[in-house]
Design a protein around this nucleic acid. Sequence first.
DNA 1: CCTAGATGGTTTCAGTTGATACTAGTTCCG
DNA 2: CGGAACTAGTATCAACTGAAACCATCTAGG
Lengths: 174, 174
Amino acid sequence: MSAEISAFPKRPARDPAPDEAGEDRLVLDDYLPYRLSVASNAVSRLIARAYEDRFGLTIPQWRLIAVLAEDGAMTPGAAVARTVLDKVTISRAAQALVKRRLVARVAHEGDGRSHRLSLTEAGLRLHAEIAPLALAYEAALLSGLAPGEVAAVKALLKRLEAAAVRLSGEPAAD
Amino acid sequence: MSAEISAFPKRPARDPAPDEAGEDRLVLDDYLPYRLSVASNAVSRLIARAYEDRFGLTIPQWRLIAVLAEDGAMTPGAAVARTVLDKVTISRAAQALVKRRLVARVAHEGDGRSHRLSLTEAGLRLHAEIAPLALAYEAALLSGLAPGEVAAVKALLKRLEAAAVRLSGEPAAD
DNA sequence: CCTAGATGGTTTCAGTTGATACTAGTTCCG
DNA sequence: CGGAACTAGTATCAACTGAAACCATCTAGG
């Protein structure tokens, strides 16, 4: 009853190979999707709390502001592509920001279905206020890394993303 | 009314410096929290779909199975620490897995509040089936990277996570 | 023109998430 | 012993998410 339900080896007859690249055994701590998820969650939580507490912004709202500040006015569709967020998410973020008068929408001249979003003066001011804070958080996160490592990690993340997108497109090779 | 709401410079009087480490301007594409979130979402979506389609498992369920296979039986509390998931999430994942007879719970002898979770034979078999697939996905994601880069990115992610956790603990320096 | 389909955005709704409240059991301490 | 304070785990509920339905407008073909 209280005996072992399932007896299996804690260590499957194998010492921990220090830095084997072609790992053939699953070790959660070294499993990339796990590492990525945990790191991303930790960073997101930190950032989300900062923006929420200080400016009452969600991360999608903040991302939308960032791309509008960076590229100027654009349609919701363009913002979706630019931010890699869902169109529903963009729609809601835009709504909230319009309500707060941080973003304005003007009808798209050529196409009556669409419209263009742009930052208001207040939106620009808010962006100017947040940007330094955002950069400070990034700097704090990266403070332990050498400049070369910073560039490396950003580049590697882009490549991982590209690989994931590519694999998602494929019919999941069977 | 329909005039330009906010006129502002597309390029704030500054050419794009190629690889400046101490970036003083916010560029979303090079902003770490953004890169991390986008990469993590892309990978998670890929993996989640694979596990869901083939085994009917969510990611939390899979993670719980993985740690139980790796470390053996443990309490829900230990699993929370080990998986970096919320305790509610673990509670629900365990419930679902118990229902599917992949996980068994036995009362904790010393402590009546708690209990121990362990994989059943069926759970072990499922783990044995999934693990190679999980490793194959990881290999596919990492296929473009040199072995040294693989080790580097994993190590860097750990450091970023540690930094984020450390910063979260602090009172958000004002 | 006028209808059939495509497209841009919004709304709806079902499922998931995580903060909070709650229950049961344990430990500390007089 | 007998509670007060604490801990492990579960349940509840409000908020968030994204898939699918929807509405308005645009474009193409007859």
